[in-house]
């Protein structure tokens, strides 16, 4: 049963249909939020809020075939809201953030190999250091596998804007990896 049919059933009073939607989508939303915040707690909170909002607003979704973009849009807006709140609490500038300990070691000892768990935390740290609008596009493209058209639909932006944000996001990540001497070591690990 596809999403549109489940939504139709939910609108007809079938609560189990909404449960099936949650089961189908919660892992993707959690993964998206986790890549954004690098925190399971915040990802769980965003996931919870996303589905609460979806539950309340699902009746307002006009085109049920667009559920995918709609649910990602909710999650994305919640992530951005949370980022705004967090930025009031702490500075998020690149210079202000500390360098990862493994990255520090690699800078001083390039022959050291990167362990998988270290690589994950380094990648998460790098993602946290690029602007939110670029980070979201990188996550949606790299980890959610959305097409440019779908990302543009989620964000309500032209496709070229999405591609531009992705391009600059990848460039900044590359710069960070070079600063941390990460890329060559990680590739050697492969």
């Amino acid at each position: 049963m596809n999403d549109a049919k489940l939504i139709e059933n939910f609108r007809n009073g079938d609560m189990e249909a909404f449960n099936r939607l949650v089961k189908r989508w919660q892992q993707r939303i959690h993964r998206f939020a986790y890549r954004y915040f690098a925190s399971h707690d915040e990802a769980s909170e965003i996931t919870q809020k996303t589905f609460i909002k979806a539950y309340k607003k699902l009746n307002t979704l006009e085109n049920t075939d667009k559920f995918s973009a709609w649910i990602y849009r909710i999650a994305n807006n919640l992530c951005l809201d949370e980022t705004k709140c967090a930025s009031r609490r702490r500075s998020a500038s690149m210079e202000a953030l500390p360098k990862h300990p493994v990255a520090e070691n690699l800078s001083s000892n390039p022959d050291q190999l990167v362990q998988q768990e270290d690589l994950e935390s380094i990648l998460q740290l790098a993602l946290r250091q690029i602007p939110a609008e670029q980070r979201i596009v990188v996550i949606m493209k790299e980890y959610e596998g959305l097409k440019f058209r779908e990302i543009a639909e989620v964000l309500g932006e032209p496709e070229n804007t999405v591609k531009s944000r992705l391009y600059y996001g990848l460039k900044k990540l590359r710069t960070l990896f070079e600063q941390w001497n990460i890329e060559l070591e990680a590739l050697r690990y492969e």
Partner: peptide, 23 residues
């Protein structure tokens, strides 16, 4: 190469399930 590095991110498997609405 940057893409290749990003793709090394391990997959996530959240073990906790959201609370479901009672039918």
């Amino acid at each position: 190469e940057t893409r290749s590095l990003l793709q090394r991110m391990p997959e996530l498997n959240p073990d906790q399930q959201l609370l479901m609405v009672e039918p």
